[in-house]
Amino acid sequence: MTTEKMHFEYPVEGGNFSAAGFPSSQVKKTLKQLNVDGNVIKRTVVALYEAEVNIVAHAFKGVIAVDIDTEKIHIRLTDEGPGIPDIKKAMEIGYSTATPEVREMGFGAGMGLSNMKTNADSLVITSEVGKGTIVEIINYFHK
């Protein structure tokens, strides 16, 4: 594996579901090229996809910053949006504030944050109501 550090950024547009999944797909390709363990790749793309969909479903816009070094992948998703008033509540399985349109697509079932937690070695969510949310996901390549 290369010793170089890699940095990627992807813009995310609120409401644009048709573009969702592109960053996860790119990250998956990059990690495969770096010969990262398949299980780590699978966990990372699940956590990233869920976090991205949350921006699309709830925020106006956001940026996904991905940093990869020899030890880990660090993903920071920063959005401008309504924020999360009660993060503990939001983490509960089945709790969702998604719109009926989003739910009809099969999203917004209140499973996303729990999927993120299960598939991230470290998950930190900070949020300010009326401003936005920052989600940080870290997965380590070697346990």
Partner: peptide, 13 residues
């Protein structure tokens, strides 16, 4: 399943 996060979380390759 018709819930996307359910598939994301539980379906395997």
């Amino acid at each position: 399943s018709d819930l996307l996060s359910d598939v994301m979380g539980h379906a395997n390759a």
